[in-house]
Design a protein around this nucleic acid. Sequence first.
RNA 1: UCCCCGAUAGCUCAACGGUGGUAGCACUGGACUGUUAAUCCGGGGGUUGUAGGUUCGAAUCCUACUCGGGGAGCCA
Length: 427
Amino acid sequence: MYIDRAAECVGQVETIDGWVYNSRSSGKVAFVLVRDGSGIMQCVVAKNDVDESIFELVRHLTQESSISVSGTIHAEERAPAGYEMHVTSVRVHQVAVDYPITPKEHGVDFLMNNRHLWLRSKRQWAIMRIRATIVKSIRDYLDSSGFLLMDAPILSANACEGSSTLFSTDYFGVPAYLSQSGQLYNEATAMAFGKVYCFGPTFRAEKSKTRRHLTEFWMVEPEMAYCDWSQNCDVQEQFVAYIVRRVLEERKEELAIIERDTAPLEKIVPPFPRISYDEAVNLLQKAGSPIQWGEDFGGDEETTISGQFERPVFVHSYPKSFKAFYMKTNPENPQTVLCADLLAPEGYGEIIGGGQREDDYQLLLERLHAEGLSEKDYAWYLDLRKYGSVPHSGFGLGVERTVAWICKLPHVRETIPFPRLLEKIYP
RNA sequence: UCCCCGAUAGCUCAACGGUGGUAGCACUGGACUGUUAAUCCGGGGGUUGUAGGUUCGAAUCCUACUCGGGGAGCCA
């Protein structure tokens, strides 16, 4: 049996294949917490009920030894999860010696170096299961809302946005780069399939050393033909609200393990507030920030803005100067572009960047030249504006930042099984 | 890349110029029939990150380096 099916197995004799999570023993009774990946089961061995050799064996089981235990499943209030096994036999596969992660506190460096073992811990177990539900709800929402999965290439000949640093590799003698976004390709597939999304790993070789950055992270990027920036926001708020609701419904136990207060998550329902960059600058200045119009927001600014709202907040119409070349110029204020970032509450900041794309051939060409990008490299992208150009929009949601917010984690490094951080690629 | 901080037992830490800690966890021997990071008694466990320097004496002060943490910039 798997431990998460304990309720269905009460009164039955079952076998659990797992690992020793922790054990305690007194003179005549021993408690072994066994985990099998699906949960943790308290297994009880009473000296009088079993052969002496089994009792002695169990008493000396070490943390993370692999065992198969058999016995009867009982409902038991005193057991951690409400059920326990009264053990009749034990088979030891391997005795683990000196497992490094003890049931006391450890430092981040030590735990990261032992990430391959750290994932066995209860807290990491809960976070990874919430991550899996977030990923599943992302796919479920898009698949059932008319979006077609159209994955973008990981290897590419040129940068998507000139600004970020790219990881380079050798592609049969010519330079190639690891994708930092599938967006440009999404624009092509959206013109072929209407509503599309890509979902995969993304790479940024930035020397960023903060709680919000990984060099390899997962991003889902939907793109929609015949969609303006405002309709784009409509989709995003429904999408994010759906993800949060699914986690609340399906991961109660995991949220409890990580002691996440779910009250703020219950409030994540559409519509989300929408403020312009201008309004955001005003709001920041009133809050005492020295920011001037035309400057980009840093982590502190994002925290201040999102701290004013209980729901995620859209900040739209940023100045053109620090946004990517493909963003559509705002016809009402040509100094700005029709983009919108979504800032998560509780100080988490940007989880989505998106907006409307420039669909005018001439304007796009001018922006491309202004950024010093080669027209030849982007010939295929410009074709999309030559052959049936339409208003279209899309966005990219960072999975790890979303997991960090929903789990209220202090750092994104715990949101992915094996995080890739600045100069850290082991294990 | 820049600014702060740190490195002592396998892990988490104490000692802050005068002999490395009756320290906790882990491991190990013992006690205990309902434990919840169990508790209690005993045991083993150290080139104080590396290389120099100051000093009668350095884990402690100074310099450089290495590794790590927090933050900035950039971004999801």
